[in-house]
Write a protein that binds this DNA or RNA. Sequence first.
DNA 1: CAGATATTTAACTTGAAAGTTAACTATCTG
DNA 2: CAGATAGTTAACTTTCAAGTTAAATATCTG
Lengths: 121, 121
Amino acid sequence: MRAKQTRRVDDALAALADPTRRQMIDLLRERPRRAGELAAAFDVSAPAVSRHLRVLRTRGLIEEEPAPQDARLRVYRLRQKPFQDLQAWLDEVEGFWTEQLDSFRALADARGRSRRPGGDR
Amino acid sequence: MRAKQTRRVDDALAALADPTRRQMIDLLRERPRRAGELAAAFDVSAPAVSRHLRVLRTRGLIEEEPAPQDARLRVYRLRQKPFQDLQAWLDEVEGFWTEQLDSFRALADARGRSRRPGGDR
DNA sequence: CAGATATTTAACTTGAAAGTTAACTATCTG
DNA sequence: CAGATAGTTAACTTTCAAGTTAAATATCTG
């Protein structure tokens, strides 16, 4: 039913697992940027940055296009879809609290959260 | 000043990077579960599951408490905060499209998106 | 054309992550 | 108490991600 979506969420999460890539997203969130701009922002070598960008691209989080004025430069920008997918997944997870917590937390609070009169399960 | 929040988002993303852990969240989303229940759901050994749970716990995504009736059992449940933090971060990222894309894309489209025809994407 | 610039690919090293089996701890049950 | 059950920790192996430097590719500039 949602195997493909699940796959995309996993892709996005895998891509975002590395803090450097996470920060790259934060930079690209402000505006599209060239590879060199990003490389300057992080204290790692250019090849390392290049590989991070490749990961982000193959996982679908960003897209690349050559800069119009100078074809040596490559400009990277965010793609929307994976972030939408992530949000959709998080909304599902949030259901845990909106659906269940009402009844559950009411019960938990009622019994003081650490005591154990038989309640759940 | 959101260094601490950034840290938490990185923690959450690191914890969710592994697809097995991602699926564990999906199971815990339905209801709190024991370690053994989760182990049964995944085709890996119990120690492997135990370690995944530890990662999820130390990164703050779940919490553990002994089951009331049988202290051998440990019940794991989702914690809300990291997911809220993630959503907050995603909302920031989404700003890219709502704030900037309007003007940016309008401009890009207006000038034909690049000097070359066709190749794009 | 020669040299500089931007970025990627290649080749390699290293550290950590994830899996395994075996052993340990704690708790329950007859 | 003896044995079973639930789960974790220990010790080890293997795979892989991320970093590095060096070389390659492509494009711009004088």
